[in-house]
Design a binder for these strands. Structure first.
Length: 882
RNA sequence: GCCCGGAUGGCGGAAUUGGUAGACGCAGCGGACUCAAAAUCCGCCGGCCGCAAGGCCUUGUCGGUUCGACUCCGACUCCGGGCACCA
């Protein structure tokens, strides 16, 4: 008997599926549809293990649903615009388009070798002019619908290269190529008005009941609705500026009598106005601007303030003034760019007050504290309590104090309650070549003129150069200079391109009619939308998903999606990452798993980091051991943490090698084994080999198994052993079905292992055995098919079937065969398991108690005493309390 | 810094969602087969004590609720994801 030969088998079935167009999706009103989608890949060059895991999971769902009778749509495409292509262009003098399409070709081949049940006829790349033409049409419709505007926003500016940098390109506050300290600079940019939809996007989260709770929480927090008070401080008289008042936003107006300072953003108009007038302020502000734009950077930077010397007057006491600071941690983008500080009840304000010697007056007293003696140490008090030291608010709860404060401010005409969102408008302008051109023209007379739809697409010019930093579109005068579509005068194209998040915010809708000459085709969108199951990395939990939700709403408003699709993803699953150990040489360079050799530690347990030579294992054994390593040059290597596979840490394993060595089914099987899909999985060579051995084991067992003829009737005689095999079969069908349905693929795999263990131990050859065994193997083939489709087809054929398994329905189970008549129940005494009894499944309380008291084990622990209480949970457990 | 997760044997994990902790897999150990190796098959496999029967301990740490806690509550520690121009 020959071994199972994945290298020959897999391409064979891939061809059969392709020739029969097994996965081509067509509208069919007679069947329920099911749209399963995995987040499409960026064509970086090669697929990585994260892709294998993501697409293996999606394929399990797609094949399972197809077997269950659904009309499945399972498409694939390419998120093809982005910075890496431009970086490649600069470094290797290749055109970003050529580089991208080459990568797509390579990755398409790799993905096809995985045997995914994809409808390749719907494939597109977002850099295809046919795709971005429709994106431009969408932009124009959104512009007309008032969903787009222009806004000043800040970018990272590299003063040496004279380019805008992505946050990723700012390393320790310096440009990644020039090394120059980055500055913040303001630019007028195109934005999508997502903040107009903040309330709607927030409340609709409640309806996303098939999304992970953590993602819903993250989205809620990101949108960040807060109810607060916006009010105006009067300025104390000063000689520097004519500035009557300072408007601030706060959610803690109950603490206004604990205020000890006001603070404004360095970019606040008042701060700018004072720059030439207050000694040192210009320098302070400049220093604040010498920083990247990322929130993490701003928030972790040392908190610094600059006393402007100006003061504001407390709204409720004309004799009470406090200083105005410029502070580097106040964001101009949130609220009014100005706050008041109450150090006692806000940690950041407290740190600031301690640093600059400002008053700390507690105004909220914790319930268990005495108002007279309550003091603030190094921790601000942010809990509940009653108000103290606050004149007319004294004794109130926080909520009552807020209400009273808002009422009085409104009465006085200096402030009003206001809902604020953390969510900012979505800036989409990018000063880069490799993106979707924004289809507008700037005319000196007409202003901003949309490109007429008849002139779309605004295609990217091919003849561009990347020898200079900056946006090549800016330099390309032939492309840039055009007549105004309205008046015909000389005008210029917008040279900014769109954020690549735009491309990925509607591709799921485009898949329903990928070749239409409008963004979508209503009949197709209406049939296929929504995505029934969306699968992707949790790293997209906020931005991509929020933008897509916004886009779906925008597309509905502009007539491109039906109303039911304003929430486009019915169910979401966020899978974990694929991780691997990292290896670092003494000089700090990262090493790939292939570059390290492993030494054998004697007890086989802990890795021997320090050990040099004594027991270097031969290379072919290497991958089975997790121990210390050395490079070929005999350096010692440090084993770093197990982290997400990434090029920069070089801890990657190439799926192509694995597929070549073991086959796609092995890679898929291993990826689905062991780790729950939502968690990170560590790739280990040993795990892959284990998966490979399992397939061989099933193959061997089936080749040696004696079965009845295909389609033979159920025999009359049923031997107990054969009956138990049938029970195992039906239980396994039940479990695997449930586990696939609930995304517990690791448990489905474990169920199949258990089943195969049972199956291969049954050696009878009576008539009912032959029947039970055929039933078992037929079920096995069908249960494994979503995970190891080629292998399943092969054993299906071996079982004698003439038609491919891909067209076979999912197996059903007989519920009577999944239940045991007798069950074992643990008996606890004072909460510790001491005995076990066998009882009928339906046994009642009295019967169970009788059996418990009759048990010698129980009697031994009871020692003649009468139990105080016996807790019986029928079908579960008994606890005897003495 | 802020938001969101996670932690169970040597390792990945399971535990019917408050009811037998460690299913299943990997690694390891012992044995069979073999001239030998690979492959395969059989057995063992959380720790401590014990000849055994059995007992005690054990789900990151500390405390609480409960007849009963991996599961619920409170306080921490460490690790990971996101933070708006990486995709």
């Amino acid at each position: 008997m020959s071994r199972y030969n994945a290298r020959a088998v897999e391409p064979k079935w891939q061809r059969i599926w392709e020739d029969s167009r097994a996965f081509a999706a067509t509208r069919d009103e007679t069947k329920p549809k099911y749209y399963v989608l995995e987040m499409f890949p960026y064509p970086s060059g090669r697929i990585h293990m994260g892709h294998v895991r993501n697409y293996a999971m999606g394929d399990v769902v797609a094949r399972f649903k197809k077997a269950r009778g659904f009309n499945v749509l399972h498409p694939m495409g390419w998120d093809a615009f982005g910075m890496p292509a431009e970086n490649a262009a600069m470094e290797r003098r290749v055109h970003p388009g050529a580089w991208t399409y080459q990568n797509i070709a390579a990755m398409r081949t790799q993905l096809k070798s995985m045997g995914l049940s994809l409808d390749w006829e719907r494939e597109f790349a977002t850099c295809d002019p046919e795709y971005y033409a429709q994106q431009q049409a969408l932009f124009l419709d959104m512009l007309e619908a008032g969903l787009v505007s222009r806004k000043i926003s800040v970018v990272n500016w590299d003063p040496v290269d004279n380019t805008v940098l992505a946050n990723e390109q700012v390393i320790d506050g310096k440009g990644w190529r020039s090394g120059a300290p980055v500055e913040r600079r303001e630019l007028t940019q195109w934005v999508f008005r997502i903040s107009d939809m903040a309330d709607e996007l927030l409340s609709a989260i409640d309806g996303l009941d098939k999304w992970p709770e953590k993602v819903r929480l993250m989205q809620r927090n990101w949108i960040g609705r807060s109810e607060g008070l916006q009010f105006r401080f009067e300025m104390a008289p000063n000689d520097l500026v004519d500035w009557p008042e300072l408007e601030v936003y706060t959610t803690r107006h109950d603490t206004l009598f604990g205020a000890s300072f006001a603070a404004i953003s360095p970019d606040h108009p008042l701060s700018r106005a004072l720059e030439g007038k207050v000694d040192g302020l210009a320098a302070f502000n400049a220093e604040c601007r010498r920083m990247g734009t990322s929130e993490a950077e701003l928030e972790t930077a040392e908190k610094k303030g600059f006393d402007t010397g100006l003061r504001v007057v407390h709204p409720f006491d004309p004799n009470w003034t406090m200083p105005i600071y410029v502070a580097n941690f106040i964001l101009m983008d949130y609220g009014t760019g100005a706050i008041f500080g109450c150090p006692a009840h806000d940690q950041r304000d407290l740190d600031f007050a301690r640093k600059y010697g400002l008053d700390v007056v507690p105004v909220v007293c914790p319930p268990d504290q005495d108002a007279a003696s309550f003091e603030i140490g190094s921790d601000a008090y942010i809990g509940p309590g009653r108000i103290i030291n606050s004149r007319f608010l004294d004794g109130m709860s926080i909520d009552d104090a807020k209400a009273e404060m808002a009422r009085r401010m409104l009465e006085m005409g200096c402030g009003e309650a206001r809902v604020n969102f953390r969510l900012r408008d979505w800036g989409i302008s990018r000063q880069r070549y490799w993106g979707c051109p924004i289809p507008v023209i700037h005319c000196g007379d007409c202003g901003i003129v949309p490109v007429p739809k008849a002139d779309l697409p605004v295609k990217l010019p091919d003849d561009v150069t990347f020898d200079k930093p900056g946006n090549p579109l800016d330099r390309h005068t032939g492309w840039r200079n055009v007549p105004c579509p309205k008046c015909g005068a000389d005008a210029r194209r917008e040279t900014d391109t769109m954020d690549t998040f735009v491309d990925s915010s509607w591709y799921f809708a485009r898949f329903t009619a990928p070749h239409a000459d409008t963004p979508t085709e209503m009949a197709d969108a209406d049939y296929w939308m929504n995505v029934d199951q969306y699968i992707g990395g949790v790293e997209h939990a906020i931005l991509h998903l929020l933008y897509s939700r916004f886009f779906a709403r925008a597309m509905h408003r502009t007539g491109h999606l039906p109303e039911k699709s304003i929430e486009p993803f019915n169910a979401l699953f966020t899978q974990g990452m694929v991780t691997h150990e990292t290896y670092r040489a003494a000089d700090g360079r990262w090493l790939t798993p292939d570059e390290v050799k492993i030494t054998h530690e004697e007890d086989g347990r802990e890795p021997a980091l320090e050990t040099r030579d004594p027991q270097i294992v031969p290379v072919d054994k290497v991958d089975l051991r997790r121990v210390a390593r050395e490079t070929s040059t005999d350096e010692e290597v440090e084993i770093g943490p197990t982290i997400k596979m990434s090029k920069s840490k070089r801890n990657t394993v190439d799926p192509e090698q694995i597929i070549e060595q073991f086959g796609a089914d092995t890679a898929r099987w291993f990826m689905l084994s062991d780790s729950p899909p939502e968690r990170d999985v560590e790739w280990t060579a040993a795990g892959a080999e284990g998966a490979w051995r399992f397939l061989q084991r099933v193959w061997r067992a089936l080749n040696e198994a004696k079965l009845c003829a295909i389609g033979a009737p159920e025999p009359q005689l049923v031997l107990p052993m054969a009956a138990s095999l049938r029970q195992a079969t039906h239980k396994t069908i039940m479990r695997v079905s449930r586990n696939i349905e609930s995304f517990a693929f690791n448990k489905a795999v474990a169920d199949i292992y258990t089943f195969v263990n049972t199956l291969t131990k049954e050696h009878g050859d009576s008539e009912d055995y032959l029947f039970a065994r055929r039933e078992a193997y037929e079920a096995l083939a069908r249960l494994m098919a979503p995970m190891t489709p080629h292998f399943a087809e092969e054993i299906w054929q071996l079982l004698g079937h003439a038609t491919p398994l891909v067209e076979a329905p999912w197996p059903s189970y007989d519920a009577d065969l999944t239940r045991d008549d007798m069950i074992s129940m643990p008996v606890q005494i004072n909460g510790k398991k001491r005995a076990e009894i066998q009882v009928d499944r339906e046994a009642d309380r009295e019967t169970i108690e009788g059996l418990v008291m009759a048990s010698p084990d129980v009697a031994r622990f009871l020692g003649g005493k009468t139990p105080r209480k016996i807790i019986v949970v029928p079908g579960r457990i008994v606890n005897v309390v003495i």
